[in-house]
Amino acid sequence: MSAASIVEEGTVQSTVPDPASAAAGDPGLRVLAVAGVAGVALILSGMLVSGYIPAPGAAWSPERIQEFYAGAATQRRLGIFLMILGTPLFGALVAGMSRVLVLGGGNRGGWANLQTVVGGCGTVLLVLFAMVLAVAAYRPERDAEITQALHDLGWYFAFISAVPFVIQALAIAWVVLRSGVLPRQFGWANLSVAILLLPGAAMLFFHTGPVAYDGLLTFWVPLTDFGLWMLLLAWGMWVSADRDAVAGERR
């Protein structure tokens, strides 16, 4: 019997290796979980260093945006560099969660695959967020309107792109609530993440207020929500590591 069929059906064999010893020999998911935590730390510290917390205002003039990038340019570039290092690490959480969901037999109907695909899209959007902001910071002496357009584009990659992350959180919640691969509260927390991220997609219509891209619903709530979500996913992978190691031993 293949390991895949074992985990798909959720059957338990009498010859199961000792989980503790198996986990000790194979760090497995825990490496990905740590990578995810490192990703949160790098993204948030990068945003702080580059002056993106609090966010530049959606109603700022092109000249003000240009001044923002021209002032303390090296510090901003250093922060963006940290973000460039951190954003791809979201992929570690996507890969690890896919493994966790499959361990629970959660790929019935393709839900674990959905999590992987939209999580992959989300990872690309996060990387583009950091890269486009890097371009904005690279030549702040250019025409102010071009710098503003690049800044808007970078910000949009991260904050209007709520929908893939919402679908990802919903897919995780669906599998967890149906399979019990993780505690039910984990599934509910993912549903909460999805609902709190969703309003970010409305920032297109506003330049001021809570839904402008520096607002409560499109910046502060999603930023907090997303950071805590990454830690939550890392925790889910950490506590599933023993089961993953056992499945690996069977193989």
Partner: peptide, 22 residues
Amino acid sequence: GEPGVWLLVLLDMSVFAVLFVA
């Protein structure tokens, strides 16, 4: 229902409460 839905309701209503104050 179950405790999880109350967590969701609490978070959601907290956000709305902040919006109402603003």
